[in-house]
Design a protein around this nucleic acid. Sequence first.
DNA 1: CGACAGTTGTTGCGAATGCAACAGATTATA
DNA 2: TATAATCTGTTGCATTCGCAACAACTGTCG
Lengths: 191, 191
Amino acid sequence: MTITEVNPNDPRVVRTRQLIIDAFVDLLGKKDFYSITVSDISKQATINRATFYAHFTDKFALIDRFLSASFIEFAHKRVNQYSELTEETIQSIVITLCEYHEISQKLCRRNYEAIAPHVEKNIKVELEHMILQIMIKDCKDTDEDTLRLAANILTWSIYGVTYRWNIEKRSETPQQFAEKILPILRGGFLD
Amino acid sequence: MTITEVNPNDPRVVRTRQLIIDAFVDLLGKKDFYSITVSDISKQATINRATFYAHFTDKFALIDRFLSASFIEFAHKRVNQYSELTEETIQSIVITLCEYHEISQKLCRRNYEAIAPHVEKNIKVELEHMILQIMIKDCKDTDEDTLRLAANILTWSIYGVTYRWNIEKRSETPQQFAEKILPILRGGFLD
DNA sequence: CGACAGTTGTTGCGAATGCAACAGATTATA
DNA sequence: TATAATCTGTTGCATTCGCAACAACTGTCG
């Protein structure tokens, strides 16, 4: 655990992190996550190994941050903060998560099941935040603690069920799957 | 004229120069050479403008080095040092230069005529060196001063005639052109 | 078992880069 | 013409990065 604090706005820092991420993505296309070494990443990124450790604790922290950032970017394209908590929005979230799992698994080859647990926490935090923002805006008469609880439950439900959809067969498209589970979710979450 | 001496083997230096060159090539595809500023290049390369000046005196030095390096790489693929001074080799050199002019002009859009003079000197130095090496190896009985003279004359002839071929119509292919001018060159240069 | 090669984090120090400000030159605009 | 805006090189100082070496750990081979 080093991470000598660097200024994240320094252009050198921005560039270095991008080099690391680009190298990492490139290597993920060729090798298993577990056979990629920090040396590999550093070489590919044309940076020194010590510099890697100035930015990330280890390669788990790297994939963690990378997949979290990917999810945030991905999700914000589909569900913006001005959405309302309609069935359509919930569907969008379900579909987004399905597609996110698909993409991540493809990117990480056959290692996604091993990697997902490292990232799961961040994704859920972000997802819950998104859902909570929509709820707060949409249900101004309900107290926030209750909304937090509801957002938490909805988040875990959707994450869990889409994760399962992904590692199992994926016999349906995300769209079909979303339509199928929406009645189940509606039972409790929507007024 | 700054160029605070940097160690050309330092990986940061290698990377920075590559970033500058990549940015430059990219911009050359969009803008005229003369409307590209050092600021443009620096921004595109994600480096500081002051860093640019640590590597190149100005943008002329940049295109100079870039085109020279391109030529050297290009020429060495076609004429290696083990060639003999045959008509075939001369033809290869002529064709190489034609194609080099073509590529450079395409890269620099309609500015090649203005840029070429900056680069011409380096190209000719390199070309003369290539030709001289072949001559020395091939004519061991002739003294070196005479060979230098011959290499110099041959270099300027070929450079000049191919440059002209390029800026004028280019009604013939490099191959046809090489075949056409070879008899003229042969008159004096080949035994 | 021991020897070996490779990976992981960590450190101090020197070199490269970023920043902000500057004067002077060039170019755009009114 | 004037006057603002932009670009050019240059500088001193702060920060980041590369290097080389290190101990600790892992896996492999005989």
